Amino acid sequence: LVRYRTISKIPQITLNFVDLKGDPFLASPTSDREIIAPKIKERTHNVTEKVTQVLSLGADVLPEYKLQAPRIHRWTILHYSPFKAVWDWLILLLVIYTAVFTPYSAAFLLKETEEGPPATECGYACQPLAVVDLIVDIMFIVDILINFRTTYVNANEEVVSHPGRIAVHYFKGWFLIDMVAAIPFDLLIFGSGSEELIGLLKTARLLRLVRVARKLDRYSEYGAAVLFLLMCTFALIAHWLACIWYAIGNMEQPHMDSRIGWLHNLGDQIGKPYNSSGLGGPSIKDKYVTALYFTFSSLTSVGFGNVSPNTNSEKIFSICVMLIGSLMYASIFGNVSAIIQRLYSGTARYHTQMLRVREFIRFHQIPNPLRQRLEEYFQHAWSYTNGIDMNAVLKGFPECLQADICLHLNRSLLQHCKPFRGATKGCLRALAMKFKTTHAPPGDTLVHAGDLLTALYFISRGSIEILRGDVVVAILGKNDIFGEPLNLYARPGKSNGDVRALTYCDLHKIHR
């Protein structure tokens, strides 16, 4: 019993810090008490220290592992850092350059016999395009090294910054494609005289377009951006097909006994025919423009016929181009109408809503002055909100995010209106959640004399007048207030005048 009563005193000691020596009952000389009392004092002292730490809000209350900052290894790049964003855009520009100039170089340097010394005699450094290609190869190699040090988000939505895990993730992902696209074939085969082989191998750079397509997928929600990307894709495919079309004609031209190829026909049409040795002929500019003209006309199913396939190889390629053109029509131009419709969806919704308003007016036989006010209010409210119901949009977000959005939407009023000066951010967040926005066209009466005042109004834009009878008592403008002081009276009061809008007004109100 003594032991039980001794232990039962522990909660009292913990909360009230009572010393055991003052209790005459606990001072009985028993061996059990002498053993338990020192333990009680020690526990009391420890609990006292913990309570003191909690009340003082000291940093040592938290466990040590929670006080440590997340460790980022040296030379690790955050995937959302500004440097990584700028670097990704730079790589994107280099990939676009590669997609345009690599097929052009591979096709127009394929057994090209233009006048001038061969590239091997001039030297590697004197070729501007080769120098640019070398810079692109170096940048792609540097990009691989950067990807080995860039964080990523795993399946659990955690940012991984450990170098080993980053390397394994990159090896399992895009490393092989990036490595093949970054191989400097110019340096590996330079001086061997195989410019045709170098041009063909350099087309491996186009593998990076797969990554670019995935990154550009984030802009699919913007109709104008999608339309622009589709047109660029169409032009890029036409450019690639033009390079292939020229390569076919250029390879067949020296081996044909009869002059029936499209390059021969082009030379005869523009007065620059090929001679018996295969030299001469149109310039590279004429060849490229004509090839691009043929691919565009074939892809769009126009086909004027002034550039036509004559050999079997050219006919087979033309059939493939027609098939590609039909697929592009289905996948690209078939979506253009939907994209344009999405661009004008706001206008369509406006006309639909206006039609419903006019049908309501016609069905209920609203008189002319009231009908005009109804239409003007709808037009003004639509121009202010673009038909978007803010309350319906915010309803799907958590309250903390709703408060931040409301604070942002009402920031101008909260910053410049005098009653809100000096208020804490928590108070402003709470008030912003209570605001209701209303609009009024010129001549609209917001409050009639004798109406119950259940709200306090803040003028965000425009001006109003307060009338008693036919006498203008006051004219209020931006950041002015009218209405009933909230919670100042037990019952809502009545208006002693009319409140009429002089201009288009936007008002925020808080109800009782």
Results as ranks from 00 to 15, higher is better:
Glu64Ala: 07
Asn156Gly: 13
Leu200Lys: 03
Ile237His: 01
Leu266Val: 01
Gly281Phe: 01
Tyr97Ala: 01
Ile141Trp: 14
Glu375Gln: 09
Gly346Glu: 11
Asp217Gly: 05
Glu158Gly: 13
Val357Asn: 03
Val336Lys: 01
Ser308His: 03
Leu446Ser: 01
Cys243Phe: 01
Pro442Ser: 05
Leu109Val: 04
Val100Thr: 01
Gly305Phe: 01
Trp89His: 01
Ala403Lys: 10
Gly278Asp: 01
Gly443Ala: 03
Phe228Cys: 13
Gly281Tyr: 03
Met322Phe: 01
Arg342Trp: 09
Glu114His: 15
Ile189Gln: 11
His380Asp: 15
Ala155Cys: 15
Ile248Lys: 01
Ala348Lys: 08
Thr300Arg: 03
Ile270Ala: 01
Pro128Asn: 03
Thr352Lys: 12
Met390Phe: 07
Ser258Pro: 05
Pro103Ala: 01
Gln415His: 08
Phe397Leu: 08
Gly164Lys: 13
His408Ser: 01
Phe360His: 01
Met256Glu: 15
Ile77Leu: 05
Ser105Lys: 15
Trp75His: 04
Thr233Ile: 13
Gln415Met: 07
Trp174Ser: 05
Arg205Ala: 04
Glu157Pro: 03
Ser277Ile: 04
Ser412Ala: 09
Ala235Phe: 07
Ile244Arg: 01
Ala423His: 01
Phe140Ser: 01
Glu314Pro: 01
Asp133Ala: 01
Leu92Phe: 01
Asn310Phe: 01
Phe397His: 01
Ala204Glu: 01
Gly193Arg: 13
Ala291Val: 01
Tyr219Leu: 13
Thr445Asn: 04
Asp178Phe: 01
Asn154Ala: 11
Tyr377Asn: 13
Gly223Ile: 03
Pro128Gly: 05
Phe185Arg: 04
Lys84Asp: 01
Ala430Pro: 01
Leu229Tyr: 05
Ser258Glu: 11
Arg214Tyr: 05
Ser220Leu: 05
Leu401Tyr: 08
Asn265Glu: 15
Cys427Ser: 05
Leu78Met: 06
Tyr377Pro: 01
Asn154Met: 09
Gly278Phe: 01
Ile361Trp: 03
Tyr350Ile: 01
Ser298Lys: 03
Leu355Asn: 15
Glu158Ala: 13
Ile332Ser: 03
Arg218Leu: 08
Val160Ala: 03
Gly261Thr: 03
Leu67Asp: 04
Thr150Gln: 01
Gly325Phe: 01
Trp75Lys: 04
His351Thr: 05
Ala432Glu: 03
Ile141Asn: 01
Ala348Asp: 03
Gly426Ile: 01
Met179Ala: 15
Leu176Thr: 14
Ile166Thr: 04
Ser161Trp: 06
Leu343Asn: 04
Arg362Phe: 01
Leu266Glu: 01
Trp89Leu: 01
Leu110Lys: 14
Arg71Leu: 15
Pro163Arg: 01
Phe190Cys: 13
Phe363Gln: 10
Asp133Trp: 01
Asn306Thr: 01
Leu206Arg: 01
Gly443Ile: 01
Thr120Cys: 01
Leu279Ala: 14
Tyr65Val: 08
Phe360Ser: 02
Tyr384Lys: 15
Ile189Thr: 13
Ala403Tyr: 01
Tyr80Ser: 08
Ile339Lys: 01
Ser258Val: 09
Lys66His: 05
Ile146Pro: 01
Ile189Asp: 13
Leu145Asn: 01
His162Pro: 01
Tyr65Ser: 08
Ala247Met: 10
Met390His: 04
Arg205Gly: 01
Ser81Asn: 04
Thr300Pro: 01
His239Gln: 01
Ile366Ser: 01
Trp245Ile: 01
Leu110Glu: 15
Gly305Cys: 11
Arg165Ser: 08
Ile77Ser: 01
Gly303Pro: 01
Gly271Ala: 01
Asn368Tyr: 04
Glu158His: 10
Leu428Met: 06
Pro398Tyr: 01
His73Pro: 14
Leu374Ala: 06
Tyr219Glu: 04
Lys395Ala: 12
Leu292Gly: 01
Leu207Tyr: 09
Pro184Val: 01
Asn310His: 01
Lys425Asn: 05
Cys406His: 15
Gly334Ile: 03
Tyr104Lys: 01
Arg214Val: 05
Val100Ala: 01
Ile284Leu: 13
Pro254Thr: 14
His169Lys: 09
Cys400Glu: 09
Thr113Lys: 13
Lys285Cys: 08
Ala155Gln: 07
Ile324Glu: 01
Ile91Cys: 04
Gly193Tyr: 13
Tyr384Val: 04
Gln372Ser: 13
Phe185Cys: 05
Leu187Val: 13
Trp262Gln: 03
Phe378Trp: 11
Ser331Thr: 11
Met433Arg: 11
Leu236Asn: 01
Leu209Trp: 01
Lys436Met: 11
Asp133Leu: 01
Arg211Met: 03
Tyr344Gln: 07
Ile91His: 01
Ile340Asn: 01
Pro70Asp: 15
Ile146Lys: 01
Leu145Val: 10
Leu236His: 01
Thr295Ser: 14
Asn368Ser: 08
Ala235Asn: 01
Gly422Leu: 10
Gly280Gln: 01
Phe101His: 04
Phe83Gln: 05
Arg371Lys: 14
Tyr104Asp: 01
Pro367Gln: 09
Gln365Trp: 01
Val307Gly: 01
Phe296Pro: 01
Asp444Leu: 07
Lys287Ser: 08
Ile146Gln: 01
Ala235Cys: 14
Arg373Gly: 02
Trp240Tyr: 01
Glu376Ile: 14
Thr290Trp: 01
Ala330Glu: 01
Arg214Asn: 09
Leu78Tyr: 06
Thr233Met: 11
Arg429Ala: 05
Ile198Trp: 11
Leu394Trp: 02
Cys126Arg: 01
Pro419Leu: 06
Glu64Pro: 14
Lys425Phe: 04
Ala69Thr: 09
Ser258Thr: 11
Leu206Thr: 05
Thr311Tyr: 01
Gln127Asn: 06
Lys111Ile: 03
Met322Asn: 03
Ile339Trp: 04
Leu327Pro: 11
Gly271Met: 03
Gln379His: 15
Ile324Phe: 08
Asn306Trp: 01
Pro184Thr: 01
Trp245Glu: 01
Phe420Val: 02
Val357Gly: 01
Phe101Arg: 09
Thr424Gln: 13
Ala247Phe: 13
Ser326Cys: 05
Ala430Phe: 09
Leu263Arg: 01
Ala330Arg: 08
Asn386Tyr: 07
Leu209Ala: 08
Met231Leu: 05
Pro118Val: 07
Gln402Tyr: 03
Ala224Glu: 09
Tyr97Phe: 03
Glu196Cys: 10
Gln415Glu: 12
Ile72Leu: 08
Ile340Trp: 09
Ala181Glu: 01
Glu114Arg: 15
Glu158Arg: 11
Leu431Ser: 02
Glu121Val: 15
Asn275Ile: 01
Asn250Ser: 09
Arg421Ala: 09
Phe397Arg: 02
Gln269Ala: 11
Ile332Met: 04
Tyr222Asn: 01
Ser81Met: 01
Lys272Asp: 01
Glu376Ser: 12
Ile198Leu: 13
Ala242Cys: 01
Tyr124His: 01
Ser298Cys: 15
Val336Thr: 03
Lys215Tyr: 03
Glu157Met: 15
Val95Tyr: 01
Glu221Phe: 03
Glu252Met: 01
Gly396Val: 09
Met322Trp: 01
Lys436Leu: 09
Met179Val: 11
Thr424Ala: 10
Arg259Ser: 15
Asn250Gln: 13
Leu200Glu: 02
Val226Asn: 09
Arg208Pro: 03
Leu431Trp: 03
Arg259Val: 04
Ser331Asn: 03
Ile284Gly: 01
Pro118Cys: 04
Ala181Val: 01
Met390Arg: 07
Pro82Gly: 14
Cys243Thr: 01
Val86Ser: 04
Gly123Cys: 01
Thr113Tyr: 04
Leu292Trp: 01
Trp174Cys: 03
Tyr80His: 09
Asp178Trp: 01
Ile361Asn: 01
Met231Cys: 05
Ile91Glu: 01
Asn368Ala: 10
Pro117Lys: 10
Cys122Phe: 01
Thr150Met: 01
Leu200Thr: 05
Arg358Ile: 01
Leu134Met: 08
Ala242Val: 01
Ile332Arg: 03
Leu129Gln: 08
Val289Ile: 15
Leu78Gly: 04
Gln253Tyr: 06
Ile135Glu: 01
Gln402Glu: 03
Thr347Ser: 10
Leu145Gln: 01
Leu90Thr: 07
Tyr65Gly: 05
Ser81Gly: 12
Val142Tyr: 01
Met231Ala: 01
Ser277Gly: 04
Arg208Tyr: 04
Tyr97Leu: 01
Arg208His: 11
Ala130Thr: 05
Met231Arg: 01
Gly278Ile: 01
Glu121Asn: 09
Gly191Thr: 09
Glu359Gly: 03
Ser194Asn: 14
Pro103Cys: 01
Ile361Arg: 02
Ala235Leu: 09
Thr102Gln: 01
His169Glu: 08
Trp382Asp: 01
